[in-house]
Write a protein that binds this DNA or RNA. Sequence first.
DNA 1: TGCATATACATAATATTCTTATGTATCTTT
DNA 2: AAAGATACATAAGAATATTATGTATATGCA
Lengths: 119, 119
Amino acid sequence: MYLCVMYSSELVKGTLKTIVLKLLSETEKMYGYEITQKVKELTDSKIVITEGALYPLLHQLEAEGVVTTEIVNIGKRVRKYYTLTQAGNERAKEKLYEFADFINTMNILLDLKPTIKYV
Amino acid sequence: MYLCVMYSSELVKGTLKTIVLKLLSETEKMYGYEITQKVKELTDSKIVITEGALYPLLHQLEAEGVVTTEIVNIGKRVRKYYTLTQAGNERAKEKLYEFADFINTMNILLDLKPTIKYV
DNA sequence: TGCATATACATAATATTCTTATGTATCTTT
DNA sequence: AAAGATACATAAGAATATTATGTATATGCA
């Protein structure tokens, strides 16, 4: 038994679509399980996407024409790859811009200071 | 009729409690309507808190012992002031810290810069 | 070799949290 | 005098997530 420091679910809730679109926008094609693992890895398990949240979202994105799918057989198992459409790429950009703007507004509201990062 | 550029409701959803606690932590006491106006003002109407969301939250916070209330008569009208308890101040700090950390994680995940430092 | 864990999809029941609508009432501005 | 602002409150409904469940294959290890 170990302590997993995750964020309160409310916080993460509204950002799932943004996260998924961003990942798809830079990786050409990904499948559902891969997305969950990538997010887990990149966030050091601070954000964990559940399947019950992800799959319905992916289906919704497909219905909206934001992504197209491609089913690939891996041995006897099936993988469903998702690729952004052109409209999907636009959607991803919009979502990212909106989120960045939202963070700026929240910084003002909550009085958080950005720090300069020297790499 | 004018165009109000607000964020998608999903985004704002999870942050209401954090916003309210932050405002209360720096203003000693506030009433509901005042909170809605303050947020509207500070965010240039980009974030608008609805009463249907705020009042139930305030009642919940009171039930949890995070705030205490004080009813004040203004003429023939009634105002209900909310003040953070000591536990409420702790809660506010926690929520702010969590949000700052969350933003940092999202920045890494979405590849946005710079990072936010909560002091 | 068998059992646990990981991979990989999916959906249903439930919970949470918000929007929208409605209700009451007073105060202020035009 | 009417419209809009102030000030509270709650209920119905929508959206989006959690939790639980189901199916099936693949892999690691004891």
